[in-house]
């Protein structure tokens, strides 16, 4: 039902991989010994908000992903390094010629004492598109993570595409969060009153930080007016919080996630 089928063999889509490795530069900053991209995925070093952090912006050099494409993005933050990754624009999932599903796999690893801020722009499922996205994160026990995911069903005034996104986060080898959202045509009940109802945009913001072990936050209701959107901040079973937000559009969801981040954020380390 929501299980991700393997990508069809002999697909004619683009296969592209990008890789980022961040390491301390020995002068209090962060270097990028590996910064590699190809095809539609091009990571570039851009100006960072903090001197100790390396900022990377993923630039979509081509329109992607199209049906049949298989994209992969790997990032590793070595002990003590600080990496922030964003994207230049929203990612639009578009239908391919043969109706094949596209895949986008993100693999992130954050080592001891390292920090990753993974804050891409929204992923938009255009009408007729079909994308399976997986994000797997391996956190060391002393790692810090801020990760945002925003999913939008259809461009403005357009029917939704199909989007299955699974986010799996392990900390110290143990499951911290495992969530899959399956939305769009062919998914039973997705637009019903248990899943998205009339909302067409959803977002999640995960903050994992050892700081939460000593400062367990409570639940915060961020919005509950169906006209405005709905969002809640919840503490997970491990030292992490998750903000879940639903809204009519991406702007509403971003506003709710930002509110959640302000409500939860540990002091900057």
């Amino acid at each position: 039902m929501t299980a991700v089928a393997p990508a069809p063999a002999a697909s004619c889509g683009v296969r592209a991989a990008a890789r980022i490795v961040a390491a301390p530069d020995g002068r209090g900053g962060t270097a990028l010994p590996v910064l590699h991209g190809e095809g539609p995925l091009v990571p570039r070093r851009t100006r960072a908000a903090r001197a100790d952090t390396a900022q990377v912006t993923v630039v979509g050099a081509m329109s992607a992903p199209l049906g049949g494409d298989h994209l992969r993005l790997d990032a590793r933050v070595l002990p003590g390094a600080r990496l922030a990754v964003g994207s230049a624009a929203a990612t639009v999932s578009l239908p391919g010629r043969d109706g094949a599903r596209a895949r986008y796999d993100v693999r992130l690893a954050v080592d001891e004492g390292a920090e990753l801020r993974w804050l891409p722009e929204p992923l938009i499922a255009a009408a007729g598109s079909d994308l399976a996205m997986t994000t797997r994160v391996e956190l060391a026990e002393g790692a810090r993570l801020v990760l945002r995911e925003e999913l939008v069903l259809g461009r403005a005034g357009e029917r939704p595409g199909r989007l299955v996104s699974r986010l799996t986060v392990r900390r110290g080898g143990r499951a911290l969060l495992d969530q899959e959202v399956a939305l769009g045509p062919g998914v039973p009940g997705w637009s019903g009153p248990a899943v998205l109802d009339r909302y067409r945009a959803m977002g999640q913001l995960l903050i994992a930080d050892p700081w939460f072990e000593e400062h367990a936050p409570g639940v915060v209701a961020l919005a509950s007016d169906p006209a405005e959107g709905e969002a809640v901040l919840t503490p997970l079973a491990g030292p992490a919080v998750l903000v879940t937000a639903l809204g009519r559009d991406a702007l509403t969801v971003r506003r709710l996630l930002n509110a959640g981040q302000r409500a939860a954020a540990p002091p900057a380390g």
Partner: peptide, 17 residues
């Protein structure tokens, strides 16, 4: 990890309220 992880955002949000 082969166990399904299908989630329903509205169920999660509404349960807290």
């Amino acid at each position: 990890d082969a166990l399904p992880a299908a989630s329903a955002p509205l169920l999660e949000i509404a349960a807290e309220a």
